[in-house]
């Protein structure tokens, strides 16, 4: 049995999810923010931050979500752990729709569902020592006595590669990489089954990024964790993800296994994203690539038809008028894309 299969089995058993069923299923998720203006704060428009997003996450896998700023990837992540209330759509976790739960039930489910942020510094109370910060979730949820909590903290620090000495330190005494290790440790204190990681390595130096990415990989295998890994950094997403969702302007453009996506992207947006990424190899300078012009349109006034048509080098009349559906099935390993004229097909 391979390491991946072991992780899958461990994750499935821990979450009590039947074979072949997703741990998390995001269904037609929509998040609209009102824009208010004028002296009486009348609603003058709507920002469509997330607009009909669907995907499944299976036990033990890492699902990457990539896209540029404003594509809705972080908002999707926040909606999964209910930091935002969706306008419509469902987030089904461990077989239950989170929208249907009362406060008490939601509080319980949330223990299994944790988030790691880009800048752990802003989520760590600067006046508390690392040891207390890590023990806090256990004590608050009455999961352990003070003594047992202390032991668990030592154990968790060791897991994330920090010595027990760190218990007595304050967040400002730590480097960025060490702080992110603490952020991960804190998220793991309550034995969650799913971690939503929002740009967890983007603020770190390259050599430290590699340390944290490797740590996340190891923890996943050891603990049977399932990850939703949100990032604009294609390199990191490729390294850690089994499958990848590409988002643009609140919508899913393409979903595929990591290997399929990089070997043959079908959506022109995915292709431009891959092409824009500067390869760390000067011999590839002259390579042929699609460069898009212009900026991402305003999410309050998304283009008609396909939202990418204003920047797509292959856009035709149909793209301006008719919105393409995500076809190919968003489930499992299959390759899905929302494009009328996908790449790699004779026109």
């Amino acid at each position: 049995m391979s390491a991946t299969e072991l992780t899958t089995r461990k994750a499935r058993e821990r979450a009590g999810v039947p074979d072949g069923q997703p741990l998390l299923s995001v269904q037609d998720l929509t998040l609209h923010y009102p824009i208010r203006g004028g002296i009486v704060s009348r609603q003058t428009g709507t920002v469509r931050a997330v607009d009909g997003v669907s995907f499944d996450v299976f036990p033990g896998e890492t699902l990457g979500i990539v896209g540029e700023s404003g594509c809705g990837k972080s908002t999707t992540g926040r909606a999964i752990i209910r930091l935002e209330n969706p306008t419509s759509g469902a987030v089904v976790f461990e077989g239950r729709d989170l929208a249907g739960l009362n406060t008490r039930e939601l509080r319980r489910v949330r223990l299994d569902l944790q988030m790691v942020f880009q800048d752990p510094y802003s989520s760590l109370n600067p006046q508390k020592r690392i040891g207390d910060l890590l023990a806090e979730p256990l004590l608050a949820h009455r999961r352990a006595s003070r003594k047992v909590a202390g032991e668990r903290v030592t154990e968790m620090l060791d897991r994330v590669g920090l010595s027990a000495q760190f218990k007595g330190r304050y967040p400002h005494e730590l480097s960025g990489g060490q702080r992110q290790r603490v952020g991960i440790a804190r998220a793991l204190m309550l034995d969650p089954t799913l971690l939503v990681l929002d740009e967890p390595v983007s603020a770190l130096d390259v050599s430290i990024q590699a340390q944290v990415l490797n740590l996340l990989r190891d923890l996943q295998t050891e603990l049977g964790l399932t990850y939703v890994f949100i990032s604009h950094g294609l390199g990191a997403v490729r390294y850690i993800s089994d499958r990848i969702v590409v988002m643009y302007l609140g919508k899913v453009m393409e979903v595929a296994t990591t290997a399929d996506l990089f070997a043959g992207p079908r959506h022109p947006y995915t292709e431009t994203l891959l092409d824009a990424y500067p390869a760390p190899n000067p011999h590839q300078r002259g390579r042929e690539r699609i460069v898009v012009e212009g900026d991402v349109p305003n999410a309050a006034k998304p283009p008609s038809g396909c939202v990418f048509h204003t920047r797509c080098p292959f856009a035709r009349e149909k793209c301006r008028t008719e919105e393409p559906r995500l076809t190919g099935g968003a489930q499992g390993g299959s390759h899905a894309f929302a494009c009328h004229f996908p790449l790699g097909e004779a026109a």
Binding site: S175, V206, S207, A210, Q211, L213, G235, A279, P280, N281
Partner: peptide
Amino acid sequence: VGLMKSIPHLGADDDARLESIPGSV
């Protein structure tokens, strides 16, 4: 050398583990 091995770039081998530089500056 360490810096170059620690970038998770798009042309990298799929299953190869990233090498990282231990410690910090």
